Simulated scan of single mutants.
Amino acid sequence: MRKSRPAISATTVLLLALTGCSSAVDAGKLLPPPPPSTASSSSGGGSTALGTNPLDNPDGTKPGLGPITSAQDLAKARELIARVRTAGKGPKTGYERSKFGYAWSDAVDGVPLGRNGCDSRNDMLARDGRKLTHKPGSTCIVTSMTIYDPYTGQTVAWTKEHASKVQIDHVMPLSYDWQMGASHWDETKRKQIANDPLNLLPADGSQNAQKRDYGPASWLPANKAVRCSYAVRFAQVSLKYALPVTTADKKVMLAQCGG
């Protein structure tokens, strides 16, 4: 005789609900942070659940921004930041976002992922997000995902209906770039720094709003674990585009990595 299946208890139903068996994703809902990776944090360790060590990601094509913790990598971080040139800020006069091209344009030459058929915002969501869903008929437009935000240390469930919950931060802000020398560039170079994956990082919208166009001396991520990594990424952009930082910013950048 065929055995009947045991009835599902109310307790089991409750456990299923609590463990997230629903397929719905609540926009902006904070999830438990991913468990720390057991991979080495030394250079060459690659990407982990908490993002990529920036020393292992010189072109910005690997996901996220992972912490730098080993003594060896902290020394390398200080050496990289030490190479950054310093200068005083120029005037903000004449700055407009449009001077750096149409926002999130794909029509940019000379940067990774340029002209790949997807705009740079969706490229960054796809680079750093997990469990992606896309708009029907599109392979580019991300409509939901989970993403680890390095600036807060939280994993967020995100949907396009509440797009501003996750914003794309220009690590080296465009207004800052303008004041440090980009005002003298042609539009082609300004479009590159505005859409270069090295200078783009999906992050918590409120953190991005707090940052404004400040350098590291005036703003650092709330998550202290990535402050050295943030300083390294700021330095990587500075060096790639031959833009100086202020003396105060460089001092703070070095301090985040033990300098």
Score class of each variant (00 low, 15 high):
residue 249 D to E: 06
residue 6 P to N: 10
residue 158 W to I: 06
residue 217 A to K: 09
residue 99 K to A: 14
residue 95 Y to E: 02
residue 28 G to T: 12
residue 103 A to T: 10
residue 178 W to A: 02
residue 29 K to Q: 09
residue 52 T to W: 00
residue 36 P to W: 10
residue 14 L to C: 07
residue 216 P to F: 00
residue 151 Y to V: 10
residue 160 K to A: 13
residue 13 V to N: 13
residue 189 K to C: 01
residue 43 S to T: 15
residue 42 S to F: 04
residue 118 C to F: 11
residue 155 T to G: 03
residue 81 I to G: 00
residue 31 L to P: 04
residue 228 C to G: 11
residue 61 T to S: 10
residue 244 P to C: 06
residue 107 A to P: 03
residue 4 S to G: 12
residue 87 A to C: 06
residue 38 T to Y: 05
residue 62 K to S: 13
residue 242 A to C: 08
residue 226 V to W: 00
residue 101 G to T: 07
residue 238 S to W: 00
residue 185 W to K: 01
residue 251 K to L: 08
residue 101 G to K: 03
residue 114 G to V: 01
residue 248 A to Y: 07
residue 160 K to Y: 13
residue 37 S to C: 02
residue 170 H to N: 13
residue 183 S to K: 14
residue 208 N to P: 07
residue 59 D to A: 11
residue 101 G to S: 04
residue 95 Y to S: 04
residue 177 D to Q: 12
residue 118 C to M: 12
residue 4 S to R: 15
residue 253 M to I: 10
residue 230 Y to E: 02
residue 243 L to A: 09
residue 225 A to R: 14
residue 21 C to R: 13
residue 19 T to I: 09
residue 210 Q to G: 13
residue 245 V to R: 00
residue 83 R to N: 12
residue 123 D to G: 07
residue 154 Q to W: 05
residue 177 D to V: 04
residue 10 A to N: 12
residue 123 D to S: 12
residue 44 G to K: 12
residue 109 D to L: 05
residue 169 D to R: 01
residue 127 R to Q: 11
residue 83 R to F: 01
residue 17 A to V: 13
residue 61 T to R: 10
residue 149 D to R: 04
residue 56 D to R: 14
residue 52 T to H: 01
residue 128 D to E: 10
residue 42 S to T: 15
residue 66 G to E: 02
residue 9 S to P: 03
residue 204 D to M: 06
residue 19 T to E: 09
residue 153 G to I: 08
residue 100 F to T: 07
residue 134 H to Y: 15
residue 144 S to D: 14
residue 121 R to C: 02
residue 135 K to M: 07
residue 192 Q to M: 11
residue 238 S to A: 15
residue 85 R to Q: 15
residue 43 S to M: 05
residue 209 A to Y: 08
residue 248 A to W: 06
residue 22 S to A: 14
residue 51 G to I: 03
residue 60 G to W: 04
residue 129 G to R: 02
residue 165 K to A: 06
residue 186 D to V: 11
residue 117 G to M: 02
residue 82 A to H: 09
